[in-house]
């Protein structure tokens, strides 16, 4: 790990922000609204299962879940600092935010790796 983690965190923030800007709206619209509410017919369980267990889709979903979590962590951390004008405890806020993103990343890796 580099001595100063800020550039790395900013890079993950930017990558997650870009990925979510480009891909989240269509995913939310289809998987969160159109399919559950029956506006459009979603894929069958079998075809969705075949799609998601494909190695490329697993990698896609890993980036799709992990990078936006780091986007959240980095942005939320500074928002908390600014909203509450924290002078102390900023290290704890950072630890909780990046820690949560790391936990989510490991959970995603495990879930996608063991998905059968």
């Amino acid at each position: 790990m580099a001595r100063n983690p800020t550039p790395l965190m900013w890079t993950l923030f930017g990558a997650g922000g870009m990925l979510s800007a480009l891909l989240f709206p269509i995913h939310i619209f289809l998987l969160g609204l159109a399919f559950p509410l029956g506006w459009l017919e979603g894929p069958s369980y079998e075809s969705l299962h075949a799609l998601v267990t494909h190695p490329i889709t697993r990698l896609y979903l890993f980036a799709f879940i992990s990078l936006p979590l780091f986007h959240w962590a980095h942005r939320f951390r500074y928002t908390i600092n600014d909203l509450f004008q924290l002078k102390q405890g900023t290290g704890i806020v950072a630890g909780i935010c990046y820690g949560a993103a790391l936990v989510g990343t490991f959970t995603a890796a495990y879930t996608l790796w063991t998905l059968s």
């Binding site: 997650g16 922000g17 979510s20 989240f24 995913h27 939310i28 998987l31 969160g32 979903l61 799709f64 879940i65 992990s66 936006p68 979590l69 986007h71 959240w72 962590a73 939320f76 989510g104 959970t107 995603a108 879930t111």
Partner: peptide
């Protein structure tokens, strides 16, 4: 909300 949807996707 970005984080929330990532968790929901997982």
């Amino acid at each position: 909300f970005v984080g929330l949807f990532a968790v929901l996707s997982l």
